[in-house]
Design a protein around this nucleic acid. Sequence first.
DNA 1: ATTAGCACTCTATTATTTTGAGTGCTAATT
DNA 2: AATTAGCACTCAAAATAATAGAGTGCTAAT
Lengths: 344, 344
Amino acid sequence: MSNDPIINDRARTLLKTLVERYILDGQPVGSRTLARDSGMNLSPATIRNVMADLEDLGLVASPHTSAGRIPTVQGYRLFVDRLLTIKPLRSNVVDQLKLKLDSTERQKVIGSASSLLSEVTNLAGLVMLPRRDTVILQHIEFLPLTSNRILVILVINDQEVQNRIIHTNRQFSTEELHQVANYLNAEFAGKELSSIRQHIVDSLEQARDDMHTLMQTAVEMADQIVESSQSDDYVIAGESNLMHYAEMADMDKLRQLFEAFSTKRDILHILDHSIHAEGMQIFIGEESGYSAFGECSVVTAPYKVEDQVVGVLGVIGPTRMAYDRVIPVVDVTAKILSSLLSSD
Amino acid sequence: MSNDPIINDRARTLLKTLVERYILDGQPVGSRTLARDSGMNLSPATIRNVMADLEDLGLVASPHTSAGRIPTVQGYRLFVDRLLTIKPLRSNVVDQLKLKLDSTERQKVIGSASSLLSEVTNLAGLVMLPRRDTVILQHIEFLPLTSNRILVILVINDQEVQNRIIHTNRQFSTEELHQVANYLNAEFAGKELSSIRQHIVDSLEQARDDMHTLMQTAVEMADQIVESSQSDDYVIAGESNLMHYAEMADMDKLRQLFEAFSTKRDILHILDHSIHAEGMQIFIGEESGYSAFGECSVVTAPYKVEDQVVGVLGVIGPTRMAYDRVIPVVDVTAKILSSLLSSD
DNA sequence: ATTAGCACTCTATTATTTTGAGTGCTAATT
DNA sequence: AATTAGCACTCAAAATAATAGAGTGCTAAT
């Protein structure tokens, strides 16, 4: 995919130092600072020469003639792909993450993961809701409510429950409903949704009218589940963290970003990209293809249920985020979430 | 409650004009502008005298000596309480609101209401989730999943369904579970939660162990529902709208505000206040008692289910919001939501 | 190949001036 | 007695100018 610019060891080290420094304090880095930080015993003049080369290669840029250099997107890319030394998380941090996630109720793990990501990294945390590709009907149940209203409960895939209230033309007795449910359960429990729909469609004409209504509702609900799992959704936490960063000072940019968060579409598109690529993904600045995220990077990792990738989580923050710390956090969180979702 | 400052008709009209003008363009209003806008045929000099009086009364203030006047919180208060002429919504707007809300699925009405409020007012929309004071067990159901996992489904108050997976020490057969469920339903369906808990506690010792586990889980789940209805929650939409307003330009203030949104506590406190007061409520600036909302006003209205107030909705925006337009929107939305939640 | 040295560039900071909107007060007017 | 014209005054904001300093690129020496 990427044919790296050819640069020698010295240039690499300098680029690395420069990026690290820039990530640290967000100021353009000058030759003198770099000379000091790199620990290479080179004079600023030499460094200036190297910088000129790196600038020609498009890896660094200077905001104006008399400022230091800052990394370009390509500079970050090279840094992230080849120069980055990732700091392994201290094991107690891992334990802490595990503990916090483990102690939340099952229904709220997703949200918690998002919050955790944001807390630990001081960026915004993202977790895409898990999707399932197969929908197997586990159980169906009808409960009579007052007058002509019936509560339909659908259990699919062992865990998920969907419920809805429907209105019928006539009143059903508990006994009647029981019968219908029994029939449907006997017939369809354990089957895949698509095959059930086929059955229903086939038997549509000959079925009794009331039965028909109920069955149709059930299929509709199941369809809705499938649909909602395709149109996807995600949870975000700690957006306000982003307001700390100087590069977000432009109110208009910031508004665009926040609007993108609530529109969801673009974010989902990025996350969707990640779900198809094995392993971690990093989008730096404009790489994501959306101008709203121009100054932002997104770091993602897929998470699994029963060894099957079902979603993606990650963080979004300024391009000059501390990748060396963020990457392992995202990685580990994905693993913890996976094990948590799979184990029981 | 409030002993209004005594001001004559002329002063009132001028204050009204001033507030309206300030709401319109956010600039301190000078005597000349006011002379023109008020339509009273007074010279700027006269107006200056009146303004001096209003300033003494604490109704207006000037940012500095050579600027015009802006309303103080007390000024807004007087304006809102006594001077405001509310623009009735055009009926097609009402219809539109109705239509949009009516066409969303029942489960998403709350969220929709919030989005609608924000869209129509260009502010942030808030809807507190409905709370219920009585929890009546309607039905309980156990479904065996793989190995020792059981899905417990709890139906309360006709509509709400709560489900959770529990782990048991031994495996239960479908038949067994059916029996337990039947017993529990026969015994407790239609009863109030608190009385059920009493029963369970009483019969705790003599119950068989497995039964005990299941029953206890059921009570726990019900408790959780009650708890979640007490600790409350709300939905917010359109926060990014707030970034349009000049008075939110201070990034630090803005961050505090957004943090308050995600912390939820303070917002909930404000909404909670409103739920106990019949009718619409308006908190102007510091009146809310939270510094994070210093520059903001909150307009709320309660909404009902079956003539019972169950929640509050409203908007939050800068103190200089267009109260005359916002108030009817909030009012009408509350009414529409109420009728929608009650009708079926 | 590296570096010291130097002229040069450009931003950021601070100081200075200018402008104009708006006030408060006083004296004239109604 | 209320209103208004007139005027001196204030102050923020905008425009302009002056300064400082960080950093560069290039050349010539090492």
